[in-house]
Computed example of a mutant assay.
Amino acid sequence: MKLTGREKTELFLEGIVTVILLLLLNLSIIILINQSIQTNPGLRDGIFIIKRSILIGPDHFHLWSWENIFITLMLVFDAAVVYWRLIRRYHQMQLRHIISELHYIANGHLDHRIGFKLKGNTQSVVESINALVDSVIKSMDEERAIENSKDELITNVSHDLRTPLTSILGYLGLIQDKQYHSQEDLLKYTEVAYLKAKQMKSLVDNLFEYTKVKQTGTPLSINRIDLNQMMEQLVASFELEAKKVGLTISAKDTDQPLYIEADAEKLGRVFNNLISNAIKYGKDGKHIYLDAQTGQPGEVIIHVSNDGSQIPQKSLDQIFERFYRVEASRNKDTGGSGLGLAIAQSIIDLHGGYISVSSDERLTTFSIHLPVKHGDRLTKKDQAPKTTN
Rank of each mutant, 00 (worst) to 15 (best):
K188R: 14
L203N: 09
D382M: 08
I114F: 02
A131N: 10
V245S: 03
D376F: 11
V245C: 01
G108L: 03
H97N: 07
Q256H: 07
I288E: 01
S149E: 13
L258R: 00
G338L: 06
I275P: 04
N121L: 14
A278G: 12
K243P: 07
S309A: 15
D151V: 15
I37A: 09
E101V: 01
L73N: 10
M140D: 11
P219Q: 01
Y210I: 10
F238H: 01
A328Y: 13
N228V: 05
T334C: 12
L258K: 02
W64G: 03
G173V: 04
F70H: 02
S367M: 10
E184M: 12
M200I: 06
I288Y: 04
S36Q: 08
T163F: 10
A80R: 05
N306R: 02
G57P: 01
I311P: 03
S367Q: 15
L21S: 06
S202V: 10
V270P: 00
I260Y: 06
I54L: 06
V136H: 12
M230D: 07
A145R: 12
S202D: 14
P297N: 05
V125Y: 01
A292N: 07
Y259I: 06
G375A: 02
A193R: 02
H369Y: 12
I275W: 03
A193P: 00
Q233K: 14
E184F: 10
Y259C: 05
I114R: 00
K373P: 11
K243A: 13
L118E: 01
I175D: 07
